[in-house]
């Protein structure tokens, strides 16, 4: 039985008619809303490739039933920044070569954005590594990922202070 719901998706209100109650947020995005930037690496909450922000918090979209999200605010990689105006995390990932094949990258970046907004201390690389350890990178780009998260956290903290001033 179809289920109607409303989401705020990447800043825009979307009415969604769900054809099947089994649909996860990940499969809603990828197979029904043509937002394929979010990746499926395990479908079991074990790899982080599908990380998106729901109401500002990072979640594994493969473990989130879409039907539970009526009224929620969802941000995916497509809503974070654009090629012309990259989010600081995106820019830092390019700068520090924080990826190779790129398949885990949208999840890493969303996870990093969430981690930074949780109040990460940029000067604590051990904490960054821990905080990013829900996102597997089989290519092993962890060195660059850690540097990128650190730099983005610093830059965002500095920008935040400027904005506040």
């Amino acid at each position: 039985m179809p289920l109607s719901m409303t989401l705020t998706l990447n800043g825009a209100a979307r009415d969604v008619v769900l054809d099947d109650p089994r649909v996860t947020l990940l499969d809603l995005l990828r197979e029904r809303l043509d937002l394929t930037g979010t990746k499926k690496g395990c479908d079991r909450g074990q790899c982080g490739a599908c990380t998106v922000l729901v109401n500002g918090r990072r979640v594994n979209s493969c473990l989130t039933l879409a039907a539970t999200l009526d009224g929620a605010e969802v941000t995916t990689i497509e809503g974070l920044g654009t090629a012309a105006a990259l989010h600081p995390v995106q820019a830092a990932f390019i700068e520090h070569d924080g990826f190779q094949c790129g398949y885990c990258t949208p999840g890493q970046i969303m996870s990093a954005a969430g981690l930074i907004s949780e109040g990460l201390d940029a000067e604590d690389p051990e904490r960054i590594r821990e905080g990013m350890s829900g996102n597997i990178c089989r290519c092993g780009a962890y060195h660059g990922i850690t540097l990128a998260v650190q730099e983005a956290a610093r830059r965002m903290a500095a920008d935040g202070q400027e904005d506040a001033a």
């Binding site: 394929t36 990746k39 820019a91 990932f93 949208p106």
Partner: peptide, 21 residues
């Protein structure tokens, strides 16, 4: 040189096989 495919990969634009429907 930084990766030429960097922007595609950090914005989710890079398309992998299963992204096609």
């Amino acid at each position: 040189v930084t990766r030429r495919d960097g922007i595609a990969k950090v914005t989710g634009d890079a398309d992998y096989a299963a992204d096609h429907s």
